[in-house]
Structure formats: structure tokens, C-alpha cells
Amino acid sequence: MLHQTGPVIHCDHVVKRFYEDAQPGDSGVVRRGLWRRRKREVTAVAGISLDAQAGEVLGILGANGSGKSTLIRLISTLLLPDDGTIEVFGLDVTKHAREIRRRINRVSVEASFFKKLSALENLMFTGRLYGLGAQETRQRVHYILGRLGFSAAKVNATLESMSRGQQQKVAIARAFMTTPELLLLDEPTTGLDPKSRRDVQDFVEEIKARRETTIILTTHDMAEAERLCDRVAILDAGRLVALDTPQALKQQAGADVESFEDVFFAFVGREDWEEAMADEDLA
């Protein structure tokens, strides 16, 4: 078990706004910058408050544009909040970024690597940035990739020659080899083939069983969220609309819900994905 006394993540009324070039007819236009250009204000995260406890898997569900990835970027110190506070391990993300970065890692939906380099070369680079020696990196890489069902012979192949599933497994190895206390998984299984998806989910379940790492998991896959997460937060248009265990959310959603997908739609007030995703165009 972890020895974190308070919550691993503490978000208090977090707000993040972005400004995009305004188009004719846009509402909410403001003048910004040195040239006072017309910008459309988009509130990606609108006053979210939540905590994540040590060792738990907290799922974050929402349609595209609901603020999931922005929240992950805020927690991972890549974005600064406009309002509110975010503390990770009790440290303010705006003031203690480097201390936090030592203890966290992230897997994003795109497996981001130097594509001409081999998996091992990319991971050796990460290892050095996190203070790992070459031998230690190799051992960790082989262990993690082995657990993910990744062929050892492929470790010297370039990333560009790998399938999307293989690339994502290398991305997961990159995150886990640094033994993070907090792992931010931003749609890690999106676009993967069924086998790769199962491999990744099994690995996350294995990590979860050890309760040594706190995991934040964003996903569109409702069954995945129900299977892997201790608690689930549902976001809609940047707002937190629900946060509880999957079982409790099912009960709250009403007696007529059958799947966890129905639970999601019940909370966001939409009928189906088409309606849920329509907001993306408005965001």
C-alpha cells in the first residue's frame, strides 16, 4: 500500500479556458492579446472538484470535448489552471512541478515517440531522463513488455514498423518503467485491436491488484471503466456531473438502466453517442 496520508490528487474548483480564433457568428467573443484579436472563449474545465485516493483506479468518462484530456494535462503539470487549485501528493502543480513529475507518468491516446528510433532506443532515452541506468532500463523494459505480451525480438524494431497496439504497449512500458506512484492513462486502449486491448486491460488489472499505484483512467469504453475502475467520474461540457463507484452510479441512474453505457447517458442527459458527440462541434 502507498504511504500517502491525504489524497493523491486534490482538485478544488479547477477552471481552464482556451481561446480560439473567432468565426463570424460566434457567441462569447472576447478581444485578447497584443493585437486585441477576436477570440472565442472555450471553457474546457468548468470548476471541477474531486479527489483521488492512494491506490485507487479513478475512471474519467466523457464525450470528446468534455474536458477529460485537459484535466489530465492539468494534473500532469503540462497546463496551468486559470482558477482553482490542483494538488498532487499535497504539492501545488503550479509551484512544485518538478517534484510532482518525478512521481508521475502518463500514457496518452497517441503513442508519441521518435518513430525512426527503436522501442529500446526510445525507452533508453526516457530511462536516462528519469535517472535509470542502461542495464536497469533494459531489465524493466523486458519485464513490462513481456507482461504485455510484446515479443522480445521486436524491442529493437523501429516504432514506425510497429502496429498501433504494439506502439501503445511500448508507451505503457515507458510509463511503468519509471515506477510512478500516480499513472495517468488517457484513453490508452482507444483504437487498439481486441487482443491488444485485452492485454492492456489485464496489465492495468494486475497493477490495480497490487494497490501500489494510483491510476487515473480516461476512456470511451464503458465496459472497460466498469471492469477496471474503483470509482468513476462523469464529465459533461467541462463539468463533473457524477462521481461514485460503478455500482452506486448504476443505482443512482435508475432501475431501467441495463449497461454502464446507459448509466453514462443517464447522467449526461443524452440518448446516445451521436447526441453526446454533437456537443463536440459546439465546444
Binding site: 494535462r73 500532469s76 503539470t77 503540462l78 518538478r98 517534484e99 513529475r101 518525478r102 508521475i104 502518463r106 496518452s108 497517441e110 508519441s112 515517440f113 521518435f114 518513430k115 526516457t126 531522463l129 528519469y130 515507458r174
Partner: peptide
């Protein structure tokens, strides 16, 4: 261009 910018910038380095 390679898409690695976020990973390099969130690494715990000076």
C-alpha cells in the same frame, strides 16, 4: 513533429 514534446516537458529534469 514527432509528438514527444509533452513527454520531454513532463520529465523531471531541469
Amino acid at each position: 513533429w514527432e509528438g514527444t514534446i509533452e513527454y520531454t516537458f513532463m520529465a523531471p529534469i531541469r
